[in-house]
Design a protein around this nucleic acid. Structure first.
Lengths: 207, 207
DNA sequence: GAAAGTTTGTGAATGTGAACACAAGTACTA
DNA sequence: TAGTACTTGTGTTCACATTCACAAACTTTC
């Protein structure tokens, strides 16, 4: 009932809720309680309720939440209610994993194009996407693609980011293990899979 | 000068600092200021200094930090000063990307084993690692491996986690797009690459 | 239809981390 | 040696996020 600003931490958790809700719907459950949902995402019930309270009343007291309705609302907030087209740059091991990852569909993403520098790869098809030469990056604006995924080797990351920005991209998901610099108006999310593993030993008690 | 508990958020940032310090050392710079380091990781100087202040004085006023010394200390805190052996389960697209990812070496990881269920893959070698049958997971304890990486399809994730726990693993890096349940003593970090992309459209202003 | 059992929504309290400002120490210059 | 320019280390303040507790609303039971 507030409709104020939604905290960043809540936004960070919304995709997780959405994933669980879709899963729950597929199982044929249309009603879900904050407790059940919390268990599915590894949180606690009051956290779930607080998060949802930032954008209106979707539950019914004594009953729970309507999974479909809630999922629709989350999609709307995250702007996933329209198909989001994305361009992938770099079809190596990481790039291939991204192209074949089933999870993107859940969120309404369409990886519409893929680019690489290797002439041998140009023209090949992976999962219905034809690989094009990076020189064709500038066609993105015309094709109405506003999201870029960087999966190139470390040394080419910044250069790729620059090209994506010129091509009119508004958001970048960066898998290269380095910090990239872009204009403030562009949003970048960096994932370094090794970096996340590096946190693990700290939390493990000595044998 | 405090030597108290180090905040979780600081721990989360340490691998990033380490990566930047290694990079800086490779460039031949042995001294680095909080400002330079902050620029390399996309943070601000006082954040960097505050983070380091939780585990002693490593800088020299008017000069900066000794990159090597600082890197050594971060490795020690994160328990990366000894080689950490890890086991990978699932050598599909994501698994292959993990195996060939150059970043793990920076943090002193050794992905010593890989497992899969596909008989066609058993015995094959990827990046010097021979793929074994999942039934051999129980040999992990004997081989002194305490970290597991899950890169199997969604439906097999929980089962794989259970097997890893039985095999004596203490920490799990989970790439499957679902929440997995393990005993409290086991630390799990989940990365869903699609989930992170899902956050991006929210931050992009409407056209 | 009353009582007991669920489950949500949210104000308030508590906890945690980020941002700031500045004293204190070091290097450099002349 | 004095003065200037840097840079760290940290106490304090401020902002934000989590946890808690409980009233309100709904369902079920008898």
């Amino acid at each position: 009932m507030r409709y104020g600003r939604i905290p960043d931490e809540t936004i960070r958790r919304l995709p997780g809720y959405l994933r669980a809700l879709v899963f729950s719907s597929e199982q044929g459950r249309q009603r879900i309680s904050s407790r059940t949902l919390a268990d599915l995402v590894g949180a606690n019930p009051w956290q779930v309720r607080k998060d949802f309270s930032y954008f209106g009343d979707f539950g019914t007291r004594g009953v729970g939440y309507d999974a479909e309705k809630l999922a629709r609302q989350i999609r709307k907030i995250l702007k996933l209610d329209v198909v989001q087209k994305a361009a992938l740059v770099g079809v190596g091991n990481v790039g291939s994993a991204v192209l074949t990852h089933p999870g993107f569909r859940v969120y309404g993403f369409d990886i519409a194009v893929a680019f690489d520098v290797n002439p041998k790869k140009i023209g090949r098809k992976i999962d219905r996407v034809v690989i094009e030469d990076v020189s064709r990056l500038r066609t993105l604006k015309r094709r109405n693609i506003r999201l870029g995924i960087i999966a190139v080797p470390r040394h080419a990351a910044q250069e790729t980011a620059d090209k994506l920005v010129v091509a009119g991209v508004k958001g970048i998901l960066n898998f290269s293990p380095r910090y990239i610099t872009v204009p403030k108006r562009i949003k970048v999310i960096t994932i370094d899979i090794a970096m996340d593993l590096a946190r693990l030993p700290y939390y493990i008690p000595a044998r």
